[in-house]
Amino acid sequence: MAGTAHAAGRPRLVWALPGLLFFGLFAVAPMALVAGLSFTDWEGLGSPTWSGGDNWSRLWHSGTMRQAVGLSLLLTALTWLVQTPAALLLGVWAAGRQRNRALLSAVFFLPLLASSVALALLWKSLLDPNFGMLADLGDWLGFESGEVLGTGRGAFGAVVFVAAWQFIPFHTLLYQAGARQIPRSLYDAAAIDGAGRVRQFFSITLPQLRNTVVTSTVLMVVGALTFFDTVLILTQGGPGTDTTILPYLMYETGFQSYEMGYGSAIAVSLVLAATAVSVLVVRLTGFSSMRSTREGM
């Protein structure tokens, strides 16, 4: 009986073939090529010439690279710190049954619908020191002469802010879905025991959302490490190199300086870093074991 069920119902490797082929062709193969390119010298013309570990030793000693790594890590940390609390609270709120909830949630989701490019252009105009809203509000907000994008901190803060503004709605959606899954009976029981709203949030909602937090964190971390389009439009990595995060450095090296080999080395380190960090997050949180958060229910 068990044997026939296995033959009929359990998927065999063949079933995964289309997915594997797709992934192999469009993800693994290009990555392998880029890894190969990182050992060559190529300006995009003719054939690449083998240069051994030159790109890698240059990468290791480069001050710009070190700065970019630091900025990328800082961006990742700030992204998590800014977005997680906001998205968590909004998501739990949006999972409730309050009046106006549906309408307000719809408004909160709007930034998610616009393209990153459009949003970056919008914010760039708003942050223009002479003709944007900052021309009037800048002094009041504490930016000398209303120039946000012209200072290193201001520009970096603007990138973090625009990213948060754009992606908090997405993570809110995750938390909303997660919070909706929590059985009503848990709250009812807690209420009988005399737990207030805050107590309920910390003792029921948060532990129940553990897997959602991990999912959202992995997405945020990988997203922040590979964040690019907003930087390209909003700051172009500037002022100077103060917002040149890893992906932007990769783009600039490969497609503006036409140093494809060196750019590939940056790309490979980015892939390795993003993979390592997400594996680490998943491992540390025990997410991979897929333990239920609702044992005994």
Partner: peptide, 13 residues
């Protein structure tokens, strides 16, 4: 001036 660092040319600022 004081705030040339984030002024652009291509958007006609």
């Amino acid at each position: 001036g004081k705030k040339y660092k984030s002024v652009q040319y291509t958007n006609d600022a």
